[in-house]
Structures are given as C-alpha cells and as structure tokens.
Write a protein that binds this DNA or RNA. Structure first.
Lengths: 203, 203
DNA sequence: CCCTTGTTGATACATTTGTATCAGCAAACT
DNA sequence: AGTTTGCTGATACAAATGTATCAACAAGGG
C-alpha cells in the first residue's frame, strides 16, 4: 500500500494556513478557497482531508491547542529542575503574551474562537474551552505550591489568584493586540501585580 | 416640511436590532436583511438610513458606546454625592460586568468588535477604541484620588492599578460569558483583588 | 506490471449577500 | 390641495461561498 504523504503533516499544513489567515485578516475571511491557496494546495485537497468547513475549523482549534501546550511544556522544562514557582508562572505568562508575531497570532486566533464560542457553542468544541481551563488549573496548582511553601502573601486564595492572573493576561493581551498598550507596559502591570501576590522577602 | 419620524430614534431602532443580533448569533450573522427583519422594518429602510453595511456597523459601535457611557454616568450619579472611591470603582465594574442579559450583550458586542478591530482597524473606528481608553482613564483618576486620600496600599501605581483592573474585568468577563465561571465567582475574584489594593483599615 | 493512494483540474450549482433601481403609497406640513 | 418626506415592495444582479461530481494523472508498493 503506497503512502507517500504523511496525513498528519498535510493536515497540519492546512490548519496552519488557516491560522495564518485568521491572524492576518480575521476569522470572517476564512474560506475553503482562501485556506487552500494559503496552504499552497488545491481546494479539492482541503475538501479531501476535511470534508466540511466546520470540521476544518474544529481541527484548527485542536491544532492550536496542542501546539501551545507543546510550546509551554518545552519552555517550562527548559527552566531546569526545580525552578521557583514565580519563575514558572512568569515564564508561562511571558510565553503566551502577545509579544512577537507568533504569540500575537495565538492571541488573535484564541480570541476569535472565544467570540465564536459565545454565540455558537457547537462550533468551538470542548477541546477549545478545555485548554484555557487546563492552563488555569495548572497555574492554580503552582500558586498552591507557592502558598504551601509560604511564598505567598497572607490571605491569598491560590485558585482566585490563578483566575485573576489569567483574566488579566487575557484582557491586557487584547489591549496590546489592539495597540492600546505596549506589551512591555502590560507585562509591567502583571509583574507589579505579582509583586503584591508573592511575599516580598525570601528568594 | 413634514417630519413625522425622528431620524435619531429610527437609527437607534435599527442599530439596537443589530446589537441584539450580534449578542444572540454573532457578528458574522449580521446581514442587512437580518437587521431589517429584527428591527421590523424593510431592507430598503436600512439602506435608506445607513447607505452601506460598513457605515451601519460603525454607527452601531458609536451607539453602544454612547449608551454605555450614559448608563455608567447615571449609575455613578445615583451613588449620591461624594461616594467612596472604592464604591465608585466597584459600581462601575459591577455595572459593565456580564451579570444580566443587558450587560452580557454589551460584553459580547464589545468583544466581537475588538476581535474585528484586531485585523481590520478601519472598520472599528477610533470612537470604539477610545471608549475603553476613556473608561480606564476615568478609573485611573479614581485610583489616583484614592491614593491621594491615602486609601491605597503602599507601592501602588494608580494607572497600573486601573490597567490591571480593566484587564481583569475584560478577561474574566469573557470567561463568564463562555460559561467557564459564574459571574459571582468572577466578581469575588475582583473583590479579593481590590481588597489587596485598598488599604484595609479606615472606612 | 498493476493497483492503490494522493492529488489536481474543471466545473457545476444552489444560496447568500451587499448594493442598486424604479415605482408607488400614506401622512403631514404649508 | 399640493408637495415634500418617510417608507415599502418587488426585483435585479454580480460576486462569493460551501459543497459536490467526474475525469485524470503521477507515483510508489506488491
């Protein structure tokens, strides 16, 4: 049985093209034909791999979720063994925050899907909504660990801190993409916030 | 010269219909025909008042901005004279936060336009981007006043606090609309945050 | 060599959508 | 009464779009 092409790779090639279009011109300008052209393949092939547009869109969110998870895992692992809790948290925020073209794309794509999910929950599946939840839970776990180690200020609730941080990240990220604020300014605001959450003394 | 209809009211009737559609089924399902039907007028009339779809969309954002500003002004004025700084800030956040159908609609509309503005700045005019800026500046002013009155914790920067709060509001609001969190939970997180920004003692 | 697989091309087609046109009707002000 | 203004209806039309169909070709494995 001949198998010259890697199906997974082809699918990634096409969904990547879709994400590029979303980031550049918006979700509304994603058409089967535009995706095909951006991916450098024929319209027919897009239909071949993803029968309908809906399935293509779903595959694209899954793809972006996986890619982000990989990126974060690699980044955190690169911190060396037993990094500080705050270091891990700041690394995560710094990685997903729209600073370069890649993270900016990620933010636009995520927000676009989020808006879509507000009015058509069936299109943005559980997979999509589950990702930010998982990230927040992970961050909450880190806050919990920091609290257990006595690194947090008094009266802080790890889960509430995670929610607050992820909320800030999302809102400030949007304002950065919209050009209302510099990424550096936004990150300074978040750093300022973390300064207050973490107990000042200790290293 | 006969003038049986109030142009402003008619325009409001149509843009209101548009906003309802955005909140219910998303910005992508806003069509001239759908707006006309929702507003209970003929397609021809929508064309009559707003020549093109682009102008209709722009008018709708302006409309929502004005309406929100009015709502906030009324609400804050209703606090009586010389209300506490924290009270004003909490009132504002409580008013714009997606708790009821109206504020939920507001949030969806705002976020939809924000996403649109990310990739097509010409469609979401300065009027749109200016509104959240103005709100943040106002909140920053309140934080500054609170700081001058010695009500804030040490080492707080009023403008950074405003940015952090507005960011949190936006991000958490989205998660509430997406059903990832209860509005009450989100507001509790924000309250928890404000507890730390404001100095505990004093009334 | 043959057959399966990956891929393209050329269309086709019904729908939707923004925009435009022309005629006409009802109401109200002068 | 007449004229202006607000509004509707019926259509028209080109462009875009999701989906589907049929033929064909290249390449690699058995």
């Amino acid at each position: 049985m001949p198998k010259l092409a890697d199906h997974e790779q082809r699918r990634a090639q096409i969904t990547d093209a879709l994400l590029r279009i979303v980031a550049a011109t918006g979700l509304h300008s994603v058409t089967m034909r535009a995706v095909a052209q951006e991916a450098g393949v024929s319209l027919r092939l897009v239909q071949y791999y993803f029968q309908t547009k809906e399935r293509l869109l779903l595959a694209a969110v899954e793809h972006v979720g996986t890619r982000l998870a990989d990126r974060l895992a690699t980044r955190v692992r690169g911190l060396g063994e037993d990094p500080g809790h705050r270091e891990v948290i700041e690394t995560i925020v710094g990685e997903v925050f729209p600073t370069d073209a890649d993270s900016r794309m990620l933010h636009i794509v995520y927000t676009s899907y989020a808006v879509l999910a507000m009015t058509s929950p069936e299109l943005a599946g559980e997979r999509f909504l589950g990702d930010p939840d998982a990230l927040e839970r992970y961050v909450a776990g880190r806050f919990q660990a920091a609290a257990d180690a006595g690194e947090l200020a008094d009266g802080t609730d790890p889960r509430a801190e995670a929610a607050a941080l992820m909320g800030m990240y999302g809102g400030l990220g949007t304002s950065v993409v919209l050009g209302q604020r510099t990424a550096a300014d936004a990150l300074a605001v978040i750093g300022h916030h973390l300064d207050r959450v973490f107990r000042p003394r200790r290293t």
